[in-house]
């Protein structure tokens, strides 16, 4: 497991980010007051159910929300390699175009649809290079090198059309393309979801190696806890548009302090003997147009008390590790429950 070196600098700082979508029933607050710091070389995994706002955060960070989505408030500050800071929300369209991919690139879920079907991979590389003033020769060399690094046959892939590549090859092509301009931050939205387990394995290995070699930071969106545990340094659990628990991966997985994180962990399959039943979290995520009062999770929470139903719990720091923050009133009970479970296994 990789451990973040002591206090590396922050490359991406997000404060109180709120994003909403306009729906027929009113404003839907998909992301509510999300704050986090992403350090150089760090991999942050955002985990949570579908519809909890993970992907919306990602699109919001690069300002590519669909037309109905808007960033209502909050700060997104990016720190360039030369130390200059960039206020992403304040960029003009032209500046944003320069910022994207050069500083912050993205690997989307569903590699099948992420490549333009009518042009060759080479054209896609050249298009990207041309948009950022990289010359053709350099783009080609760099792409071939990256294809090699992600274990693809460089020449064959470079001259291929997307439909001539398999799912895993396309996903690796996207990963290589994301690194073309040496960005500091790569956003990955479930990059291993649409591929089979072996391909998933190889993509994770490739990603880990590349990360060491090229030293970029990753925001990794996943609902696969095993993958998140393997690749991430820091884990943030999201529920109903809010980050409800965040901390170093070992802390969060072995000492969870939020009932929802606990629920997710209990719902994950284990390899231990004799315990075959999986617990699912009852109920479904709340309506985000009119979110419930108090803690947003209280309707589905077995630890809920009156306090939870009226006042949203504040974000507190765990006594054992200051990097571990959580928004729950019953941290001690939940921690104890988890440790009993682990002891039983």
């Amino acid at each position: 497991m990789t451990v973040t070196p002591a206090a590396p600098e922050v490359v991406l700082s997000v404060r109180n980010l709120c994003i909403s979508y306009l729906t027929r029933r009113g404003r839907l607050r998909a992301v509510n007051k999300v704050s986090f710091d992403l350090h150089a070389g760090e991999t942050l995994a955002l985990i949570g159910e579908s519809g909890c706002g993970k992907s919306t955060i990602n699109l919001g960070l690069i300002r590519l929300l669909p037309p109905t989505g808007t960033i209502d408030s909050g700060e997104i500050v990016y720190r360039r390699r030369d130390g200059q800071t960039v206020d992403v929300r304040g960029l003009t369209t032209g500046q944003l175009r320069q910022f994207l991919w050069r500083e912050c690139s993205m690997v989307f879920q569903g590699a099948l649809n992420s490549l333009n079907p009518v042009i060759k991979i080479s054209s896609m590389i050249y298009d990207t290079a041309a948009a950022h003033g990289m010359d053709k020769k350099e783009a080609r060399d760099r792409a071939l090198d990256l294809f090699q690094k992600v274990r693809l046959d460089p020449r064959r892939v470079f001259n291929a059309y997307p439909h001539e590549l398999s799912g895993g090859m396309r996903q690796r092509t996207l990963l290589a393309t994301a690194l073309l301009l040496r960005p500091q931050v790569v956003l990955m939205d479930e990059p291993t979801t649409a591929v089979d387990i072996l391909t998933q394995r190889s993509i994770i290995d490739v990603l880990k190696r590349l990360r060491e070699e090229l030293n970029f930071s990753v925001i990794f969106i996943s609902h696969d806890l095993a993958v998140a545990a393997e690749i991430a340094d820091t884990v943030a659990t999201m529920y109903a548009g809010e980050i409800i628990e965040m901390g170093p991966v070992a802390e969060v997985f072995y000492r969870p302090r939020h009932a929802y994180t606990l629920g997710l962990l209990e719902a994950a399959p284990r390899l231990s003997v004799g315990r075959e039943e999986l617990h699912s979290i009852p109920g479904s995520p709340p309506d985000l147009v009119e979110p419930p009062p108090g803690c947003r999770f209280h309707l589905r929470c077995r630890f809920a008390t009156d306090e939870c139903r009226t006042t949203p719990p504040p974000l507190t720091t765990a006594p054992e590790d200051e990097r571990h923050t959580v928004a729950c009133y019953h941290t001690a009970t939940i921690l104890k429950t988890r440790q009993e479970e682990l002891a039983r296994d």
């Binding site: 699109l59 994207l100 690139s105 989307f108 649809n113 298009d127 948009a131 950022h132």
Partner: peptide
């Protein structure tokens, strides 16, 4: 389509 969003994210003209 996803590839349009991806192309936008790549900063294409």
């Amino acid at each position: 389509e996803d590839y349009i969003t991806v192309a936008r994210a790549r900063g294409l003209s």
